[in-house]
Amino acid sequence: MTSIYDVLRRPVITEKSNYQSGVLNQYVFEVDRRATKAQIKEAVEILFDVTVERVNVINVPAKRTRRARSRRLSVRRPGFKKAIVTLPDNEKIDIFEGIK
């Protein structure tokens, strides 16, 4: 993890994140495990050309699940670090259009 371009992995697009971005102006990313709040803030501000008000970080634990076909085998799904970035009301990130 040498540069800010390695910090953000991908946007998280789910029903919940959709609600957050639409109503709360919070944008959710999957980020590198080693990333800090400061690094995430820097990365988002530079890549999306916005000001970041606040960053919340959650370590999503790995989960056990069963394989779809052979239901006996359980599979470990990797965990990841999730960052919820809050922007001021007048700024927006168009996640679906990607990075400018």
Binding site: V12, E15, N18
Partner: peptide, 16 residues
């Protein structure tokens, strides 16, 4: 659609 319950995905996501 991954991450959404059936029928709950927004238009833009579906379009993609």
């Amino acid at each position: 659609v991954h991450g959404f319950r059936p029928g709950k995905a927004p238009y833009t996501v579906l379009l993609n």
